[in-house]
Design a protein around this nucleic acid. Sequence first.
DNA 1: ATGGCACGCATGGCGTGA
Length: 262
Amino acid sequence: MARKFVVATWNVNSIRARIGPVIAWLKKRRPDVLCMQETKVIDEFFPVEPFTEIGYNVVFRGQKAYNGVAMVSLEKPKKVSYGLDVGKEPDKSRLIRASIAGVNIVNTYIPQGRDIETEHYKYKLRWFARLKRFFTKHYTTRKRLIWLGDLNIAPAPIDVYKPEEKTDHVCYHEGVQVAFRKAFDWGFVDVFRKHRPEPELYSFYDYRIGRSGIRRKMGWRVDHILATKTLAKKSVNAGIDMKPRLGPRPSDHTVMFAEFRI
DNA sequence: ATGGCACGCATGGCGTGA
């Protein structure tokens, strides 16, 4: 008998600043898994209790001021590990993976890249190449695997407001498109797009554009839920929940979720 | 029109985000 399995991803832009909205959203939606990025806190100060009090397990890895990833789940996570074990920098506060209810989940906060002329951008492109090696090393395309998170890439024109103005942007430039596509082609299906083919669905809206900018759909789809074909076949729904972005004390990103029958 | 806001920090302006 198949069971419902809901996963979600949310760049929270500081878990301590966002603990209210995050706990409220979990209580309301009760997903099986919520993956977070940009928790911006060292492990000693991560707010564990608010999650355990409402019945969630929580695993995380952070650093001071920047980055940081976390995974909270109703079932206890198995095989938890941190960072990229291929290439030089492990970046343990940018990748956390686990197995939950027999589903392998890789939660990433991909480097943003700052500017296409910089070393930061080259580092971002290498990150996608290293991820592909990471998937090959640890999984096969026949496994139930989800790659999700803030991937800092709008893969297609439909994924950003006024794409013709974004061609030199580190989240849309041709170089990052190619780098992302190579990792994606390891064996993923875009689960969100499978269920939501329509335009103007975005997961990020810059704080500086204000409410009117959100109304005018000046956003980006840079957060993603991708799954191997084996698992994507079992997805039954996906969406972006705009309520946290429109509510009090928002992150600049909002929640993307997907539902499977596993 | 290249602006604007929010976050954390051995803060009182700066680096970062996308």
